[in-house]
């Protein structure tokens, strides 16, 4: 299934990352993704939305190569980054090629300091101490509150840990960052702050972002383009405005602003949308 709108919008340039009809299998038997395709153009924020268990994180791990650490494999289709095939390559190679994944739940190294975490982000770089120190200052420029934290990263608040995780990704000087649910476990105010920083980062550094989210409202505010995924398939795609205006997306992902429905008027309490 070709995401037609994405193709027309970016017809003038080839996308930075292109996932073509991939199938992912865990433990050689469990089929998780069934033909997922998506394109991410250079310098944009693209979001991937969907309910729990739809395969959003699996898609990110297929791109970053971390699938291999969980005994999963891309069994069909292709993933091309800057025109080169990267499916099933080891994660360290993919980091060197310029894709950095910020995993779900932040996953900072809790028994290290903020600076040590940031230095680890620059592990694959070979350009020495001065450049790395300059980049640490750059991270502190975007996340000033991290600079004041001198203790272990495990004692940071959830929001600060998320900032550290994003800062650590910046340290690798990637072309593209895969963000897996940056809003998870954060207060609404912090979600707003974090998303604003992600938007600024993309605009100022030109780092392309692929953002997986459950918080569709926030994600569609900063992304230019979105995909919706359910049970291992992309079911809908479109520009931010297309998605935000779509009745089904409104009902199932944005919610809230329609008039309240009485359960009496619904045929089934557990009604779900069948997309296909």
């Amino acid at each position: 299934m070709a995401p037609a709108a994405a193709r027309t919008e970016t017809a003038t340039e080839t996308p930075l990352l292109s996932v073509n009809n991939i199938e992912v299998v865990y433990d050689d038997v469990i089929l998780v993704l069934r033909g997922v395709s998506l394109d991410v153009p250079t310098g944009r924020i693209v979001t991937l939305l969907g309910p729990n268990g739809a395969g959003k994180s699996t898609t990110l791990k297929a791109i970053s190569g971390l699938l291999g650490t969980e005994n999963g494999r891309v069994t069909r289709g292709s993933i091309t980054f800057r025109g080169e095939e990267i499916a099933n390559r080891p994660p360290e190679e993919i980091v060197r090629r310029g894709i950095f994944q910020v995993m779900e739940g932040r996953r900072i190294i809790e028994d290290m300091t903020v600076i040590e975490n940031l230095r680890l982000g620059a592990f694959t770089r070979r350009d020495g101490g001065a450049a790395i120190r300059a980049d640490i200052e750059q991270v502190f420029h975007y996340f000033p509150r991290l600079k004041e934290r001198t203790g272990l990263a495990g004692y940071l608040s959830g929001g600060e840990q998320q900032m550290l995780a994003i800062g650590r990704a910046m340290m690798a000087r990637p072309r593209m960052i895969l963000l897996d649910e940056p809003s998870m476990g954060l207060s609404p105010l912090l979600v707003k702050e974090t998303f604003a920083i992600i938007e600024t980062l993309c605009a100022e550094t030109g780092i392309t972002m692929l953002l997986v989210e459950q918080n569709a409202r926030m994600a569609l505010k900063i992304a230019q383009f979105g995909y919706i995924m359910e049970s291992g398939k992309i079911v809908l795609d479109g520009s931010r405005d297309d998605l935000a205006d779509n009745e089904d997306v409104k009902e199932f992902y944005l919610g809230g602003d329609r008039e309240r429905k009485s359960f009496k008027n619904l045929k089934s309490y557990k009604r779900r949308k069948r997309w296909l």
């Binding site: 995993m103 028994d111 290290m112 650590r168």
Partner: peptide
């Protein structure tokens, strides 16, 4: 140290 803390995270860092 990163590998000792969490192998998957270490791999995600390259």
């Amino acid at each position: 140290r990163a590998t000792a803390f969490d192998q998957q995270v270490a791999q995600s860092l390259g």
